[in-house]
Amino acid sequence: MKIGILGGSGKMGQWFSRFLTENGHQVWLWGRNPSKLAPVASRLGSQVITQPDQLTEMDCLVISVPIDAFEDTLKEIAPFTKPEQMVFDLCSVKERPVELMHQYLPHCRTLGTHPVFGPGAKSLKGYNFILTPTTGAETELAEKVKIWLEKHGSTVSLISPEEHDRLMSVVLGLAHFIAIVSADTLLGQNLPGIAGAGGTTFRLLDTLTKSVLTEDPNLYASLQVNMPKLPGLEADFIKRATDWAELVKNGDKTGFAHRMQAIKDKLAQTEPGFEKAYQDMYHLKQP
């Protein structure tokens, strides 16, 4: 199969280029600067699309561009796509990209996809992959893609774009928000010896904050502002954080313990055996 990756010089574009090439597919990379793609393609064993009309030759297109560039990319490639050509996107949000693919590529077989991992993954094994079909034809395609992904060890879910974005507001949006604000708070304390004084719980927080801060700030900013359900979720988090801070400020030990116990009881109902998370935390590699 001939697969064109749009945004082939990006981290995830390169990841899928390598993975698909290793699994026997012919991979072609497309981007705004073909000369920039040449060394990338050479290293990955791919080829470069130098003219947009070459897109028509592809059996499948994978769009791996930032969400802010997604609509412009669709406008640019639409005249060079063909009926029944498969088109997948890799955006971390789904409602708007799926809507745009339906708008600009109604003649293609489109499917919203989200690999829920970063370019540091060695393979698909053990990682989640979400597919968001909205029609019968898309569901049929998604079932075939699901089988292929599962053969490579991925755990695959089929959900609606709306449900995907609701989940991602927590899984990505809130998690990143907490990590960034935590890093901002810690750096504001000016405590150079803090790493040597921290235990396992702090190392977990420290690893989370640093791992998020290694990523592209523009990417994370784009994710934050393009998740429509995230502002309300973050507002709820801030309100709850303020309530907890008031308990501490007022020295309300009883109130704090009562509220924490209520959360523990609720979690025990929804996730029996959650207590093992404490031991799981100690499986973190020691410094």
Rank of each mutant, 00 (worst) to 15 (best):
K249Y: 11
L158Q: 07
A195K: 11
E22A: 13
L213C: 15
P287C: 07
V116W: 10
L167R: 00
V156M: 06
I238E: 03
D184C: 08
L204E: 12
L105I: 04
L111H: 07
A137D: 06
Y127F: 14
V65T: 15
D265W: 10
G251D: 13
P192L: 03
G8H: 02
L29M: 10
M227E: 05
H258D: 14
Q269L: 12
E76L: 11
E57C: 09
K239Q: 14
L267Y: 06
A277F: 06
E71F: 04
W15A: 05
I147N: 01
L172S: 14
K276N: 12
L247W: 12
M227V: 02
D216P: 10
D89G: 03
I67S: 03
L105D: 04
W28L: 15
I5F: 06
Q261Y: 03
A142M: 04
A41T: 07
A137M: 05
K82W: 03
D236A: 14
D280S: 00
K239W: 11
P119W: 02
N33A: 12
F274H: 14
H258L: 09
G13D: 09
H176D: 04
V212K: 01
I159T: 08
I3Q: 01
K2R: 15
R43S: 11
S154R: 02
I238H: 04
L219E: 06
K94V: 07
Y220E: 13
Q261E: 15
L149A: 08
T113E: 06
K94T: 04
E162N: 07
W244Q: 09
T134Y: 05
L204H: 12
E163K: 11
D59V: 09
M86A: 14
I147A: 10
M86G: 01
T56A: 14
T135M: 03
P133Q: 00
G45P: 05
D280Q: 12
V170D: 03
V156N: 08
S17I: 11
I238K: 13
A235K: 13
S154Q: 00
F88M: 13
F256Y: 13
N250K: 13
G31Y: 02
I77H: 04
G193K: 13
E71M: 08
V27D: 08
I147W: 06
A183V: 01
H164G: 03
R43M: 10
H114G: 05
G13V: 00
S160T: 15
P115H: 03
A277K: 01
K151N: 13
Q85L: 11
D68G: 07
M260E: 00
L29F: 02
F256S: 02
A121P: 09
L111V: 08
L186M: 01
V62C: 15
P115C: 08
E99R: 15
I180Q: 10
G13C: 07
A137Q: 08
T110K: 08
H258F: 06
R166P: 00
P119T: 02
L187K: 13
S64E: 13
